[in-house]
Structures are given as structure tokens and as C-alpha cells.
Amino acid sequence: MAHVVLADRVAAAGLDDRVTVVSSGTGDWHIGNPMDRRAAALLSSEGYDPSAHRAQQVRATWFAECDVLLAMDSTNLADLRELAGAELEPDRVRLYGEFDPAEPGADVPDPYYGGDDGFGTVLAMVERTSGVLVDALGDLDLG
């Protein structure tokens, strides 16, 4: 959900020629699959297009290729930092929730095993945080 929303916001801000949004999991159990049908239905109902999204696993090359990697929760943050190794600047692997204006530093909960209302909660967090992230990107020299 965060990938779809953030990519939409990046495009709306006119930054999509300089900013590429990719997403992945740290595990390989969903590779190639579309997102959860409940997440896709909610995104569609809110005017987003989730149809192109497919699950993938984080690639080792991303630590060199990407300016920042955002983890959705503290467990994923620790996993990414371990995968990245000691050479990577710590600020390049960050918690997505650090940018949440309502709950700074919060983990984004995984709604997969809960009820449908959890997807709405996550979408609200993702939308408000994506706005802050895009504003921060707009302030950078992305030449």
C-alpha cells in the first residue's frame, strides 16, 4: 500500500522523473504475487491503481543504488540494517514512521492477519506520511 500511495504522490508532485519508488519484503514467501486483495480493494476505492504491484524481495544492490530504504516496522528495520552491513550510512535505512506527523517513530502495523479495518488504519498512516516524505523530497536537490 505504501508503494502505491508514495509513487502516486511522487508523480502528483512532478518528481517521478527523478524519484523511483520500489518496495519489497525481507522474506521471499510472496514473490510475484499481487498485494492482498483487501489492500487492493481499499486502494482502488480511494482512487489508487494497485494493479501493477507485485511482491519482491529486497535486493542486495539496492543498498548501493537507493538513496534511502524505508522499513515499515522495527523488525524490518533491523533486518535491513543487518543485510546492509556496517559500510552503509545508518541514515540511509530508516523507519517509515519517523516521518509520520501524527505518530513520529511508530511502526506501521501489518494488517494481513487482522480484520478489514486494519487496512484503513494503515492507509491513513501511509497517506499522511507519504505527504511528508514527498515534501521532504521536494526540498532536496534531486538534479
Results as ranks from 00 to 15, higher is better:
N33F: 02
P109M: 10
E98H: 14
E46I: 01
A60H: 14
A60W: 05
G105C: 10
D17N: 15
L88N: 08
M72K: 10
Y112R: 07
V19Q: 14
S44N: 08
D67Y: 04
L95F: 06
R81Y: 03
S24Q: 09
S24F: 01
V58P: 06
G114I: 04
L69E: 13
D36M: 02
H30Q: 13
A55I: 00
A60V: 12
S74L: 06
E82Y: 05
R18A: 15
A55C: 10
Y113G: 07
S24T: 11
E87N: 03
A78P: 13
Y96I: 01
V93E: 09
S51Y: 01
R18E: 14
G25N: 08
I31L: 09
E98A: 14
A40I: 00
D17C: 04
E65H: 08
S45W: 00
N33V: 02
V19Y: 08
M35P: 05
D110N: 04
R81V: 07
A71L: 05
Q56N: 08
S51L: 00
R81L: 03
A52F: 02
L70P: 03
Y113M: 05
A78W: 07
D116W: 00
E87Q: 09
M72T: 07
D110P: 04
L70E: 05
Y48K: 12
L43H: 10
F63S: 12
R54Y: 03
T20G: 13
Y48R: 14
S24Y: 02
L83Q: 13
L77M: 01
E46D: 12
L70V: 03
L88D: 11
T121Q: 08
R18S: 15
G25C: 10
A124L: 03
A40D: 11
A40W: 01
W29A: 11
E82T: 15
M125C: 00
G118M: 01
E89C: 02
R54E: 02
P90G: 13
W62Q: 07
S23I: 05
P90C: 09
D67R: 15
D17A: 15
L95K: 14
V108W: 04
T121P: 00
V93H: 09
I31P: 06
L88Q: 14
A39S: 13
V68M: 07
S44Q: 12
A102F: 00
S23Q: 10
A84K: 09
S24L: 04
G97E: 02
E89N: 08
P104E: 06
D110H: 01
M125S: 06
Q57P: 01
A84E: 11
A106D: 02
G85I: 00
P34E: 03
Q57H: 04
V22I: 06
G47F: 03
S74T: 12
G114F: 03
G97I: 01
G97C: 05
